[in-house]
Design a protein around this nucleic acid. Sequence first.
DNA 1: AAAAAAGCATGACAATCGTCATGTTTTTTT
DNA 2: AAAAAAACATGACGATTGTCATGCTTTTTT
Lengths: 236, 236
Amino acid sequence: MKKKFEMPHCETCGAKHKSIFCELSKQEVSELNDSKGCNLYNKGQVVFHEGNRTNGIYCINKGKLKLFQIGSEGKEQIIRFAKEGDIVGYRALLSDEPLSASATSLEEDTAICFIPKQQVLKMITENPNFNFKLLKVLSHELGETAKIITDLAQKPVRERLAETLLILKDTFELDDEKNIQVKLSREELANIVGTATESVIRLLSEFKKDKLIALDGRAIKLLNIPALTRTANVFD
Amino acid sequence: MKKKFEMPHCETCGAKHKSIFCELSKQEVSELNDSKGCNLYNKGQVVFHEGNRTNGIYCINKGKLKLFQIGSEGKEQIIRFAKEGDIVGYRALLSDEPLSASATSLEEDTAICFIPKQQVLKMITENPNFNFKLLKVLSHELGETAKIITDLAQKPVRERLAETLLILKDTFELDDEKNIQVKLSREELANIVGTATESVIRLLSEFKKDKLIALDGRAIKLLNIPALTRTANVFD
DNA sequence: AAAAAAGCATGACAATCGTCATGTTTTTTT
DNA sequence: AAAAAAACATGACGATTGTCATGCTTTTTT
């Protein structure tokens, strides 16, 4: 399943600077490098599966992941995304619980390193900077998640979809033509918003008609971000 | 606003054993005690307000809190509850962000201690046990929050209400007559479930008719937990 | 104790939104 | 290249659920 390829070095990792590892010493980076493993994934491949145990954390060297839970009717609910430099799986490792979500790659040639538990614990214990960064990542994530709860509970589908587009923009940024830098199916969008695929299709058409966005296959161009923000009913 | 009263001692705190502080040394507890402040709150009083900064964490000595956000239409969304021994406000402190929720007391004579940032940071740095407990609390909370997202996005109101009753049972436990040990208004229940107050009233009546629960004012008696679990459509 | 306010309850109605059916387009497989 | 499968799109319809109106009950205030 997993391709063989030249393993990236932590020392030269492009993702390191914007990651939780950015303040490690040279020696720590070297040790991290020696302890890690790395795998290549095709689009749609499972990186880990909800309910399993993990014995380390995953660090994205290249590519994008979606993290999702399967609801009681078997429907996928996307909880969050992860991109280059992000870590995933830390929640389960640190709480000593099974993984609360599954992760699959969204692009070809997604490269993901695996850092064993022992090494993670060592960095937590021996590097206060790393420890505080980890606490910060967890805390920030918890805050984002709480916001999502309020939106899901209170906003109608139209507003949630608009907001989802804005969140995707903030997470993956726009290219020089204003396209959101991630390609998702209508069904995946529905699985973020918490609605039916048909509703997403209809609402995207409306947004297009209203010149808020432009559509070309799965590419979504944000033409009028202030208007989208108003549609999402967010003021912050 | 805040009543004066005899300040509880950390050394003799009944809530300590089940809290994040349970593994502190005698000396650390003594230092914690010297650094803290403590206040009494009446029912419904605000402990802290969403959007403000915090310079420490709150530890509940006695009583219960609800934590909630105000949505874009001004409606309250209850994110979680906290009870004796729980800490709140740590998310904002550790992420260095404003408080993401407000907290108000649910009972008379709620006693809440305040531990200044400096002392929290010291315990994190100097006591690995405390640090790992904190990481665990955050991670566990993040997992719970993700579950709530999936439920809000996918389950109908009826199932969400049943599940809310079960969560309240797990959080506050039942008394010897099977009553959930917390009293909430219909509106507050609606603000957990993410629905209208009228819907909660109607569904509670149905649950009562079906002998799943008994109602006496705000007291809710869980008569048939297996059936409630089925109604909630949970299998774990 | 009376008055006011808040909370609870129920019915009627309407809007949102999900489901189903069907058809087209695009992508993947053989 | 043909066939199959998946994704996208649109209409019709109905169920769920929110809103509004109204009245009763309980709690709080004066």
